[in-house]
Design a protein around this nucleic acid. Sequence first.
DNA 1: CTTGAAAAAAAGTGCCC
DNA 2: GGGCACTTTTTTTCAAG
Lengths: 150, 150
Amino acid sequence: MDRIDSKLLTLLQEDASRTNADLAAEVGLSPSSCLRRIRRLKSAGVIDRVVALLNPAKAGRGMKAIVTVELERHGEQHMRRFLELAVMEPAVIQAYSVSGSTDAVLMLRLMDMDEFDTFCERLFRDRTNVARYYTMFVIRTAKETTVIPL
Amino acid sequence: MDRIDSKLLTLLQEDASRTNADLAAEVGLSPSSCLRRIRRLKSAGVIDRVVALLNPAKAGRGMKAIVTVELERHGEQHMRRFLELAVMEPAVIQAYSVSGSTDAVLMLRLMDMDEFDTFCERLFRDRTNVARYYTMFVIRTAKETTVIPL
DNA sequence: CTTGAAAAAAAGTGCCC
DNA sequence: GGGCACTTTTTTTCAAG
């Protein structure tokens, strides 16, 4: 992982549709050397995958919410069971167990309030062991990047 | 935006490195028709961009934290000013203004506690108008996807 | 106006130095 | 790491529905 690898990763994190020849020129390498490095980074798992990112509003899911959850009964088993349920929900795009007074944090991508309503009824009803949950609706997104700084 | 477009978007959200011929076969279209659809989705902005996702741990940033922030002085100007500062930080991967008793939520990608320490000193010191902030460190990531369900 | 087939261009791949 | 021949893929063109 030298300077050139970092540069390549930064470029690919911003735009993975660039051609190998392009990338090679940018980092000052021959196309074959450049390709070798990229393949190495992929097989080493540093590059996990290449994906298309959609415009949420244009994909019909412009609404976003952050939910903090406190469980009724704590402990590893209960946490695991709750997260298993949360993960199954398509609206849940991020699910974490966290330190502090809250047990879990969920990030939701929703179509509208109706979807939020049915989601809550499903995930936060009696049998799911949720004591309390607090919802913060996203008003403005100032930054949202998948780029990991190197 | 018919059934085939949705299928294409779902496939591309999961793996954008698939070849056009592959995608065409999957959705039952000729390569040329398939390419036309993908290009249309790109120019319409439904597909925002194609990026490489890194393995955070292998990229040296395995630590994650969620920070809720309450500002000293509220209002549009102050919120905007705070978010401008937050957005400039490379460790901040998501920054939102939200509804409820907290004003903003930040998602951080960090190398270690030292980075968190210097980050807090920089962003949450007196002059930045932050009244209170509460940090939740991510213990376990149960789900983390960029896929918007269609 | 949309579709698919085939040619042309471009990119990716593997081998040798 | 670089250069070159080979393969695959993308992209354009064009004829047909």
